[in-house]
Amino acid sequence: MTDLRVRAATTADATVDTVPDSAGPRGLTELRVQQWCVWSAPLFVVLLFGGLLLAGWVPPPAPGMTAAEVAAMYAQNPDLKRLGFIVVFLGGGVSAGLVAAIHHQLRRIPGARPLALLQVMGGTLGVAAVSAPAIVWMAAAYRPGRDPEITQALHDMAFIPFIGNLVPFLVQAVAIGVAVLMQDPDRPRLPRWLGFYNLWTAFLTLPGLLLIFFHGGAFAWNGLLVFWVVATVFGGWFLVMFTVLRARLRAEAA
């Protein structure tokens, strides 16, 4: 089945899948399942930023806070914070749906199969990059009465990777960017601008890696360049991928 698909994609018309879609029970075709998968992107954005708002993490707490200040912050609205962490955690899992939908498109680009796989690796680690900090926040909020130094250590342990762990996303975006630009320019499956867009997005995540040097200013984890620019670009990426994939699936359905 899969081999047939690749062969179909490498022959003359790469944009149209000539192999009929295999339907599951109740007519649930791959196309239909993909159409559901792409919706995970806007859902992820809502859950991620909604959870952060619930936790009181927008704008993020200043990295320069003392241990006592951090502990006092976790003692404030603890249950609302815990709820926020659960929502962020769920968001991380939900984002996997988009990874699967992107994979389905990339693997049909002739020659791009290793990149399709790389995209899945980056995207999968991206799920962990959101989920793991959420779990550490949960641990930090679990015992409000403990030594503030420990809470502060957990707090750093969550915030540094949450804002700074951009390498999985970088790998994912570069894989998509290169794969999209590899397409036959005359018959692209995905628009070519999407390739440049992904490369640009990958590039933009780089300043985030500098956050471990700073406790204040534009490069700190709550700074203009590291939080606000990256959060906008990162959130925007999910919405752009959603829009493009949805248009693509609509064209396939037609």
Partner: peptide, 22 residues
């Protein structure tokens, strides 16, 4: 060039504009 590169160029210039503002 192709339309896509202008997304990259303009996007990058927006980010640098933030740097200039800083």
């Amino acid at each position: 060039g192709e339309a896509g590169i202008w997304i990259f160029v303009l996007g990058d210039m927006v980010v640098f504009a933030v740097c200039f503002a800083v």
